[in-house]
Write a protein that binds this DNA or RNA. Structure first.
Lengths: 257, 257
DNA sequence: TTTCATTGTTGTATAATACGCAACACTATT
DNA sequence: AATAGTGTTGCGTATTATACAACAATGAAA
């Protein structure tokens, strides 16, 4: 039997409709004008509007009873702007890198113990890395993941992974925190991270950390290819490419003041 | 007996708290991480989050179950941006005009059949116009009001005021639509509107319409003074001042493209 | 000035809805 | 294969949002 639609919470829905109505009016709106929008008693509309006001989503200008949007809307928009900023700035670079290498290219941010792919461009080659069907990939055995934790020392890695075992995906996967800490050190030195058949056999990846103006790692950009097209002797060159892209993205992030 | 606090709508409040939590996280957030924030069963949190998602306030990126802010936040912020823009741009000019004239100065937008004062600076003179204790003043007998409807012809005025009587506040108040239409014509010709003791006896005001890039009237800026300090022979000069300020504000609005 | 209409706000009983619980589906780990 | 964790759905009932009435404040008309 087909499942029913997910139940909505009516009162929340009504509150959101009030927000949209007032925003669309682009003018202060009275309670009397809001009441017919919901089709319920005005005392209930008043209480909904007041709840929105208490949380700063609506406001009333001094001396007026009419409602306008409150500062919370802009505060929320600004708070969450960052990830969109990163995606916007990096989009071009992901595209350029994919075009330049012809390989599958990823942009990722860290999300707890995983790397979340927020953008990827697939290879144009007949045989290549298909791209992740998952939005999240493990940190410890992917190049973007290792780039994202490049600044972690052993202690911080222990804090992140806790008692969690590092799962072994291939014969080459790093499975201990000590090894991973060592790898982070290497990543910092090289300027880019390497996945040498650690997630998938027959696939190599390189990725570089994207740092903001304060030097903090805020994302990673990487390239994946079959081992045949990314042999060990080509790693350094590919790594330089992703590092350059990461540096440029970080520069643009800094310039956003 | 002291009235109790206005009742809040708990479900709406919970939904808004979810929005704030996700915005503050600046990262996609899982349902499992949201549940402890509200301290209710996860099925209820899921339904709240889904309601927010259905209205576009939350979103989930393809292939992910984690929530991020949805486009509705930015849509609402952008929709309502205009009035803040006007206030920001005009603030300086209101201040400058008040400093220059030493008189009470107003910035207003139209709200139905009234002019809403969204900013005012009081006179520094010992005796002057005290400023409106109301946020809204009548359109037909105030200078800012008349500036706001300067482009209205008789037909459009009839549509706006309908069968409503134009209330007579002083001996000099305009009370018929025919007279008001004539006054609008004069305002358009002069470039500014005049309240010649029509709202309050002993008070004269001049105000100019603020037009956006398309020529549409979007606000008004005005000055009020006692008749002694704004005699009839000074009206033209004062009018030129407010008109210049309005023109400058309009220019800056246009440049915001 | 008085009267009336309109609008916003508060208290409260109860009708309606949101919640908790259980079950299922899916994914990941051991 | 078994277990744990997470997201989703159905449903009975505990809780909450609503409707109604009353009051306060304001504005308009007589």
């Amino acid at each position: 039997m087909k499942p029913g639609p997910t139940q909505q919470i009516q009162s929340l829905d009504r509150g959101l409709l009030l927000l949209e109505t007032i925003a669309s009016a682009r003018r202060p709106v009275s309670l009397a004008d809001l009441t017919p929008v919901l089709g319920i008693d005005r005392s209930s509309v008043f209480r909904l509007a007041n709840t929105l006001k208490q949380r700063g989503f609506l406001a009333q200008m001094p001396g007026s009873k009419h409602y306008v949007l409150g500062s919370a809307i802009w505060r929320l928009a600004d708070l969450f702007q960052f990830d969109n900023v990163l995606l916007q700035l990096a989009q071009e670079h992901v595209n350029a890198l994919a075009a330049e290498t012809g390989e599958t290219t990823h942009l990722a941010i860290r999300e707890g113990r995983q790397a979340m792919l927020i953008e990827q461009r697939l290879t144009t080659q007949a045989v290549g890395v298909a791209g992740s069907s998952e939005s999240c990939v493990p940190l410890h055995c992917t190049s973007v993941g290792k780039a994202l934790i490049a600044d972690f020392d052993h202690e911080r890695l222990a804090g992140l992974f806790g008692g969690k075992h590092l799962s072994k995906l291939t014969k080459r996967t790093i499975t201990t925190l000590a090894e991973l800490a060592q790898e982070c050190e290497e990543t910092r030195k090289r300027g880019f991270a390497v996945d040498d058949e650690e997630q998938h056999e027959g696939v190599r990846c390189v990725a570089a950390p994207i740092r903001d103006a304060s030097g903090q790692i805020v994302g990673a950009i990487g390239v994946s290819a079959p081992t045949a097209r990314l042999p060990r002797e080509s790693i350094k060159k590919a790594g330089a490419k992703v590092a350059a892209a990461a540096l440029e993205i970080g520069r643009e992030l800094g310039n956003r003041g």
